[in-house]
């Protein structure tokens, strides 16, 4: 139960942060990416505030705890190298982000505010994610068959 409540609280905080910083607004995000236009550096301040808080918070947690409160162990991303897929994925994501001004967090956070248009983006995003999972399991099966 505490696992669910704390995850819900973390989600609420994340959504609140995106709202306060106006990052739920694609126009605001495009304003940052549009360095050739009427540039709005706000997103850099969001990033700085978030990165600083995480760097400090993770350091404190790591010093005080050997394991998280409601899970067996800390589960950092598995340390894989930087390969072609990793870079290509980031390029595709960047193009999609630049086209619309929405990335996964703000897209979900904007869902309840502007459902009509944002739902179309979120639906396509979920299809893209599921499509990746399908391709991946097909590739794994092909490798096994060989």
């Amino acid at each position: 139960m505490l696992r669910i409540v704390t995850a819900l609280a973390a989600g609420l905080l994340f959504g609140a942060g995106l709202t306060v910083s106006q990052m739920v607004n694609p126009a605001k995000v495009i304003g940052f990416l549009d360095i050739g236009g009427n540039w709005d550096p706000s997103l850099a301040f969001v990033l700085a505030g978030a990165v600083g808080t995480v760097a400090l918070g993770f350091l404190v947690v790591r010093r005080r705890l050997a394991a998280p409160l409601f899970a067996a162990a800390f589960d950092p991303p598995s340390a894989r190298g930087i390969d072609r897929n990793h870079v290509f994925g980031a390029v595709l994501f960047g193009i999609g982000w630049g086209l619309v001004g929405l990335c996964p967090g703000p897209a979900l956070a904007a869902l309840a505010i502007a459902p009509a248009k944002v739902a179309l983006f979120v639906g396509a995003m979920l299809v893209g994610m599921a499509g990746f999972a399908v391709f991946q399991s097909l590739a794994a099966r092909r490798k096994q068959a060989r």
């Binding site: 905080l13 994340f14 942060g17 106006q22 998280p68 800390f74």
Partner: peptide, 23 residues
């Protein structure tokens, strides 16, 4: 407001790391 919102986002990530050990 941008920096303040950023801190809230950071606190969310710290909370998830502290309680679930997840990014």
């Amino acid at each position: 407001s941008a920096a303040l919102g950023g801190v809230l986002i950071g606190l969310s990530a710290v909370l998830l790391w502290l309680t679930h050990g997840r990014i």
